[in-house]
Design a protein around this nucleic acid. Structure first.
Length: 483
RNA sequence: CGCGGGGUAGAGCAGUGGAAGCUCGUUAGGCUCAUAACCUAAAGGUCGUCGGUUCGAGUCCGACCCCCGCAACCA
């Protein structure tokens, strides 16, 4: 019997700008889910893909603007994103780059698969074209009928592009969604996605190469290149062997896909249509995380001046503390504000005062009284049952991808430990050494459990805590932060 | 009437018909093993507004007000 496999992928950030706090949220959530699954299923049965989306007009333009070669430009940003992962302890199994040779080949094979299904056709497309921008503008972008960047009136121009027959999959996709209602989180997205699918039309999937040299060549048509989304989306299957290793693909795909609010259309509708066209199974689970808003509750933007820099935050508090806040403090699926005061409060309350402090209380007392701890076999049954019932609740939450709720329950378990030690008073002179030993051994089991459950969230500190507990070394893991 | 989410104690949130809750913060007391940490208790809300259904509504229905996100490439 085949062992259960777990494959999770994030979306691939588009590398035309520096990583922002939202990327951190997605990466960190993904990493926490993956670490939990690796603990549960074993590392070899879990696969974690991240990467960067490196084609398209904006990158082409940006590189030109900066006066560097496209290759240098994308290499630099891919590296920025790799470093970014390291900053927040994100350990991916693969970093996918859409500029790679293998990606081009696989994407072309994907195209051919859709073409063989009769789902790709050529069509003339007309629109307002700005010569300065070298691209079509939408009505919305225009200011007084002029291009906002160049101040010129765009001209009507026609271009012939390839289109993907997405409309053909409208009904099949609705059917799929309706018979898989639990496939998307949060559940409130279900109606939204259903509406998106019910309104999907065919989409343009290529650009004229003359206008946009930076893209993957369309098979058998040297005048056209892939529209960036159409190649980028295929990465999720390419990375696990699409077109190169059928067995491997079957072993891993479908994946759990994590993405942001603006990506519901692409991941939930377009990509699902593409999969169906190519004869591949649909995504296993669609997780749409929330948006990190500014302290004022609005979307971060330079003009509002409410942008939180992940680099400044990391420098100030350390990657793990920021990570903890993103996972425990920021709502997992709903939009929520990033507030530094909340970060400090939550860190102090949960990690420093509750968990960290309890760890020291137990280690310190165990050493002072010279009693045995870390003996699981002698933990009091009723106490163990209590701890294990918390553990069950928490692992259920992890399995449901409810990260912030899981964190809340881990905190509740540590809190139970603090109440327990206060009530039992193992430091009291009235207690025999035997009683004291039992109380502290119970608590060491609780701490071991808390540490294990926290390890997907704060992996480095969890390691240190495990070590400290085993060696009975007193350690200030989480120094209190000033407000 | 573009689509969607939301308005519950100072802050952040849970709660979808039956005695208003949680965390942080605040105040008071206790403890003293511990990172001025921990424990207990208290104060603090006419659940956006108005109307309706019901024996009973934060919870259902209607209208309205306000906030936020999205609307073919910013997670």
């Amino acid at each position: 019997m085949r062992k259960e496999k777990f494959y999770l992928t994030t979306t691939l950030p588009y590398v035309n700008a520096e990583p922002h706090i939202g990327h951190a949220l997605e990466f960190v959530q993904a990493d926490a889910i993956v670490r939990y699954q690796k603990n549960k299923l074993g590392k070899e049965n879990v696969f974690f893909n991240v990467g960067t989306d490196e084609h398209g007009l904006k990158i082409y333009q940006k590189a030109k603007e900066e006066g560097v070669s496209i290759q240098d430009f994308i290499d630099k940003y891919a590296q920025r994103f790799k470093d970014y992962c390291k900053l927040f302890f994100v350990e991916y199994d693969n970093f996918y780059r859409t500029s790679s040779e293998e990606h081009s080949i696989a994407a072309q094979k994907f195209w051919n698969a859709c073409a063989e299904k009769g789902d790709i056709y050529k069509k003339k497309y007309g629109g307002l074209y700005c010569v300065g921008c070298e691209r079509f503008l939408t009505e919305k972008e225009l200011v007084d009928g002029k291009c906002p960047d160049h101040g010129t009136v765009p001209e009507y121009k026609e271009e012939e592009n390839y289109f993907f027959r997405l409309s053909k999959y409208r009904e099949p996709l609705l059917k799929w969604l309706d018979s898989n209602k639990g496939i998307i989180k949060p559940a409130t997205c279900y109606d939204e996605l259903r509406k998106i699918i019910s309104e999907i039309e065919d989409i343009s999937i290529s650009r004229v190469k003359e206008n946009l040299p930076w893209g993957i060549d369309v098979p058998d048509d040297p005048t056209q290149v892939f529209y960036v989304w159409f190649d980028a989306l295929t990465n999720y299957v390419n990375v696990v062997g699409y077109s190169t290793d059928e067995d491997r693909l079957k072993e891993w795909w479908p994946a759990v896909q994590l993405f942001g609010p603006d990506n519901l259309r692409f991941q939930g509708a377009i990509w699902q249509g593409m999969l169906e066209s190519a004869g591949l199974p649909h995504t296993k689970m669609l997780l749409r995380h929330g948006m990190v808003l500014g302290e004022d509750g609005r979307k971060m933007s330079k003009s509002l001046g409410n942008v939180v820099s992940p680099f400044v935050q990391e420098e100030k508090y350390g990657g793990e503390v920021v990570r903890f806040y993103l996972l425990a403090g920021i709502s997992t699926f709903a939009d929520s504000s990033y507030k530094e005061s909340d970060l400090v409060n939550m860190y102090n309350a949960r990690l420093a005062n509750n968990y960290g402090n309890l760890l020291n209380r137990v280690i310190h007392l165990a050493n002072a009284k010279e009693v045995e701890i870390n003996n699981e076999s002698t933990v009091e049954t009723s106490f163990k049952e209590r701890v294990d019932s918390y553990k069950k609740t928490i692992t259920d939450l992890y399995d449901a991808y409810e990260l912030s709720s899981a964190c809340e329950q881990i905190d509740a378990l540590a809190d139970y430990g603090n109440k327990y030690i206060t009530e039992k008073e193992p430091w009291s002179k009235d207690k025999t050494l035997e009683e004291c030993g039992e109380i502290l051994n119970n608590l060491s089991y609780l701490l071991k459990t808390v540490t294990e459950l926290y390890s997907p969230i704060i992996p480095v500190s969890a390691d240190k805590a495990r070590n400290a507990l085993e060696k009975r070394e007193k350690i200030i893991l989480f120094p209190t932060l000033d407000k």
